[in-house]
């Protein structure tokens, strides 16, 4: 995900009440199912697609955040190990 896309995702999330990854994922599944089943009006189709994009961005933001936290934790533990080695 590019920085620009990430900003977009965060913009989309900003107006959203706290929504968890699992909730966003489940709703995205439902949106895709409805889009694929057809039988919706053009206005509904566009609304669903926009919602799907927004939910996908929310999911991506969660995953990117999780990755970042892992990397931060790794970096922190490496710092601790380095300091311990120096003290030893």
């Amino acid at each position: 995900m590019t920085d620009q896309n990430q900003e977009t995702a965060q913009d989309q999330v900003a107006g959203e009440p706290e929504i968890g990854y699992e909730q966003a994922r489940d709703e995205l599944v439902e949106v895709v199912r409805r889009l694929e089943s057809g039988g919706t009006s053009l206005a509904e189709t566009m609304t669903l697609w926009e919602r799907g994009e927004k939910l996908a961005a929310i999911c991506q933001t969660w995953l990117d955040g999780a990755r970042r936290r892992i990397e931060d934790a790794r970096a922190a533990s490496e710092n601790i190990n380095d300091n311990t080695d120096r003290q030893a």
Partner: peptide, 8 residues
């Protein structure tokens, strides 16, 4: 449906 909403 997600890649190309223009199909609709």
């Amino acid at each position: 449906v997600m890649v190309d909403p223009t199909a609709t």
